[in-house]
């Protein structure tokens, strides 16, 4: 009996960790290259989810909805980068506050367009059948989400470590001046990375919206959890992101099961424990 609960807990937290990881890695990506702490990332999640929902209703295809949610946010983010963030480049605090204002704006716009009632994205039918293993029944779709999370993680790793683009990104993260002196177009790279980061936010929204609900307020909730993950893991570290996402989602799942009234509050505990030893998170450094 207890083993089954433990297994369920672990599976639940792993799927949730997948969503948090996709969110947090998007945030980290943009932070590393552009030093932008994108506080609109939660709004990207919510709007991406809503767009995915609308596309799903039209096309009936979950895969298309997933891509559409991501691409829409990528498009939006390019406009934001070009016309807004570029105005305050170099002023990190102003950039963060600017994205905060965008978060407020996007939240209200999505309230106007999609209304205030919680909605869920129907998950793809072919994955809806429950899967039986180790004596428990588990929704196949949630395992699929875990798979997507892993694919995105491996994809990001491959992109950053094994491709030319990734090399350019890493070089620019190390030193913008030297990178641009060696012919990397850092500005264009920034737009691309920011778009990729927003794409991940939108994708996370479609995934999250398929097993959680989309509603006003979910944007700030997921932003908070994402921030908790990166604050704990250390801003800018992908390894920290993974560990942070695993810990936080485990805490959340345990909390949901036993003390639902404290599930968000409980995430405070590991964060504070980590911060009391490492002020900048597990793998974080100042600056």
């Amino acid at each position: 009996m207890t083993e089954k609960i433990v297994l369920l807990l672990v599976l639940n937290s792993l799927t949730y960790a997948a969503v948090l990881f996709v969110m947090a890695s998007g945030l980290t990506l943009a932070f590393n290259l552009m030093r932008v702490v994108n506080l609109a990332h939660g709004a990207f999640y919510l709007v991406g989810g809503y767009v995915g929902l609308s596309v799903l209703i039209i096309t009936g295809n979950w895969g298309i909805a997933l891509i559409a949610g991501g691409l829409t946010m990528a498009g939006v983010s390019i406009v934001i980068e070009r016309f807004l963030l570029s105005q305050v480049r170099g002023n990190f605090l102003a950039q963060a506050l600017l994205t905060l204002s965008l978060a407020i704006i996007l939240a209200d716009v999505s309230l106007a367009v999609w209304g205030g009632d919680p909605i869920s994205i129907p998950s793809p039918t072919f994955l809806n059948s429950p899967i039986y293993f180790f004596g428990i029944i588990y929704p196949g779709f949630r395992l699929f989400i875990l798979l997507i999370g892993i694919i995105i993680g491996v994809g990001l790793w491959f992109l950053l470590k094994k491709t030319k683009l990734g090399m350019a990104i890493r070089a620019s993260v190390d030193n913008r001046e030297i990178a641009s002196a060696t012919g990397v177009n850092v500005d264009r790279l920034s737009v691309m990375v920011f778009a990729l980061s927003a794409f991940l936010g939108g994708v996370a929204g479609v995934i999250g919206g398929s097993f959680l609900a989309l509603a006003p307020g979910e944007d700030f909730k997921i932003l908070t959890l994402t921030l908790v993950v990166v604050i704990m893991g250390g801003m800018g570290s992908f390894g920290g992101t993974i560990i942070g996402a695993l810990i936080i989602s485990l805490i959340l799942s345990i909390g949901r099961l036993y003390v639902p009234q404290f599930s968000i509050f409980l995430t405070f505990v590991p964060m504070v424990l980590v911060l009391s030893i490492w002020p900048h998170g597990l793998f974080g450094r100042e600056k």
């Binding site: 030093r35 963060a96 908070t224 908790v228 639902p260 968000i264 509050f265 911060l275």
Partner: peptide, 20 residues
């Protein structure tokens, strides 16, 4: 920005407590 982030997260966690 770290201060901004941490105060945001802390504040939101209190919001979560009030909400839940």
């Amino acid at each position: 920005v770290y201060f901004l982030m941490i105060t945001l997260a802390f504040g939101q966690i209190i919001w979560g407590l009030a909400d839940q």
